[in-house]
Write a protein that binds this DNA or RNA. Structure first.
Lengths: 228, 228
DNA sequence: GATCGTATGACATTTATATGACATTTTAAT
DNA sequence: ATTAAAATGTCATATAAATGTCATACGATC
């Protein structure tokens, strides 16, 4: 599950540079040369994060950010602003319209990737590759392995993604619909009740290391991973 | 809290078929036989989602979609286009004018309902996520947990919502019908006296941490959450 | 003490979740 | 290509929890 990074930048060389960088960092770059172009891409599939140039022909970056923030569908997508100069005023305005971070050109690839990672970790931790440990339960996104109290646990892909998501967002209730969106994907059409079945499968597997209590039912609301 | 689904379809048998389906799926169907007719209905009450036939007499579906998108009031209403053929070009044009999804005839009831659900679940409004604390009583909307003096308190969904509402609006009296509106929902037909029962249930639970006095009866008026 | 509004316990019903089974689809191996 | 194995989504049923209503008891107010 590579994160989709939408880059909105009108200068083609910079755009390509960014895209190269991003794909090397393990993300999936999407290119847009204007706000209008970006909107089209967003209509097809919501990106996980947006890199947005401050200066754009047509709709400016800051107006576009505002627009994104005013739409329910896009308001939670993290935005990193790209600005030419390190102007404090720009920074303030950027944060005002809801940018999550911002970076001034020229920037080092390392810094850019670090910031993307930081923002993702905050907003969509399930898209990072961090090793997750909770109460003796370990999930390694890189090797794609799970173990409970050092005992390897075998599970299907869906259960893995479900557990990955829960471990990335512990102590938080998710409705079945939210889980379908986050774990299955928003373009998928399956029954709410199917979530129950996968929860049960996951719990069954976690039983091997007495971790099944981690996945809790919150009646009327959904499910939660919690150590309490 | 049934979602209102506006169906715009000129062929009466198909319209009825759709309406039947939609009401069986737990939504409330509104019927329109033309774009003009649909506009009238929209003026009366904004639907939650619109199923829009591609081919319509008078204003075409695509023009109507464009019109809806250009109006502030209606631009955020999700639209699902109904098209006769699976023409890629149509799909592109549909997405261009801002349809959220589209489905080709003939379609299975299941697929249709799944798509409606998928589109609706994405536009769910977000509730406030702030941790509420009053006098040692804590309610966390995120993890969906309540504790009194650090002791976990278990309660049913209705009691949770009731307490959530009171803690969000402390020191203020609400009549039984106001509570029914705010906590149960406005279209629900329930006896006033039932509120009493849930108040008692809530108080019983709060007794575990000596917080039952927080919920006060205001004779002749209703109930209030107050620390005084 | 009569009246009115509220509290309480019991109960039938409704609603939500858990579970086991199954048909199909996907994936991997040969 | 063929086959076997694994995974997936759905359904029917079982189980559990929550809900709304009522009858009755209680307490305040006049």
């Amino acid at each position: 599950m590579k994160a989709n990074v939408l880059i909105v930048e009108d200068e083609s060389p910079i755009l390509e540079l960014l895209a190269l960088n991003i794909s090397q960092a393990g993300y999936n770059p999407l290119r847009a040369i204007s706000a209008e172009h970006a909107e089209k891409l967003i209509n097809e599939a919501l990106p996980d994060i947006i890199l947005l140039d401050w200066m754009l022909p047509g709709m400016s970056g800051i107006d576009f950010a505002k627009k994104l923030r005013s739409n329910t569908l896009t308001k939670t997508i993290p935005i990193i602003m790209l600005t030419a100069r390190s102007d404090e005023l720009d920074k303030v305005r950027g944060l005002e319209v809801g940018a999550d971070d911002y970076i001034t050109k020229p920037f080092s690839p390392r810094e850019l990737n670090a910031r993307i990672k930081a923002v993702l970790r905050r907003k969509a931790p399930e898209l990072t590759e961090d090793l997750l440990k909770i109460n003796g339960l370990e999930l390694d996104p890189v090797s794609h392995r799970v173990s409970g109290n050092n005992k390897p646990l075998e599970m299907g892909p869906t259960e893995f993604r479900l557990l990955h998501f829960f471990m990335s967002n512990p102590e938080r209730v998710y409705s079945r619909s939210q889980l379908l969106d986050k774990v299955w994907g928003s373009q998928i059409f399956i029954e709410d009740r199917t979530v129950d079945v996968h929860i049960r499968r996951l719990r069954n597997i976690l039983t091997q290391s007495q971790h099944e209590g981690l996945i809790q039912t919150v009646r009327g609301s959904g499910y939660r991973l919690s150590t309490k």
